[in-house]
Design a protein around this nucleic acid. Structure first.
Lengths: 108, 108
DNA sequence: GCTTTGGTCAACCATTTGGTTGAATAACGA
DNA sequence: TCGTTATTCAACCAAATGGTTGACCAAAGC
């Protein structure tokens, strides 16, 4: 129970940070590359990444002078689990979830 | 796509508001009753309920002088759908979800 | 009618948030 | 070694957040 829902949901409440997470869904990225599409300073993006890291949504690993960012499943899962507490609501979307998975994930 | 993830996740990031949602999971409640377990003014709770309402997480309906609060599934579902975009992570919990549903929901 | 009950509104306050800039640090490439 | 690239740090700022109090309004109850 080490995941702090306060931090996780607060991190997810910012559109820039959600966009970053979606970018990282495609591939791990360096901080500079994460910042590129945004019209905002590198320092601001660095702060956002710090918030995502503290929330446990991503991990950052420094190799050389480049700091790589990648998604960390566990926090997303923690918040997902909390939402499942609202089973009577989430269950209604199980079919949609299955459809989504079947459609989006290559069946390798 | 009328649901604003900014508002939803910001609303969920506060522990008082999450606690309120969990209370409402059991039953619809009047504002005063929602406030009762918290050590905080009624006005503060009223604000929290306003935030939850604006986020679409609850609906409030006034009957007489009593304002009833109840969960609104749609916003929870909207955020849940966003999380499903992280399918490669959420899928890992499908088994857990099924277990949860099987265990928590009476099979009527 | 009054008084109580249920709830919001307005003004205020301290803290946090999301951004800026400029300087600092660290590692590469020539 | 020197300049460049990658990233953070520190100080600052405006705006938003989460709480308070006291006044206010509307619906019951006596």
């Amino acid at each position: 129970m080490s995941h702090d829902l306060d931090l996780i949901f607060a991190a997810l409440s910012d559109p820039t940070r959600r966009a970053i997470l979606e970018m990282l869904l495609e591939d791990d990225m360096a901080v500079t590359d994460v910042a590129e599409p945004f019209e905002m300073s590198l320092a601001a993006i660095s702060k956002h990444l710090g918030i995502l890291t503290r929330a446990g949504l991503i991990v950052q690993e420094k190799r050389g002078r480049v700091k790589w960012c990648k998604l960390d499943p566990s926090a997303i899962r923690a918040s997902s689990v909390w939402m499942q507490g609202f089973g009577q609501f989430v269950e209604l979307d199980l079919d949609g979830l299955e459809r989504f998975l079947a459609q989006e994930l290559p069946q390798d």
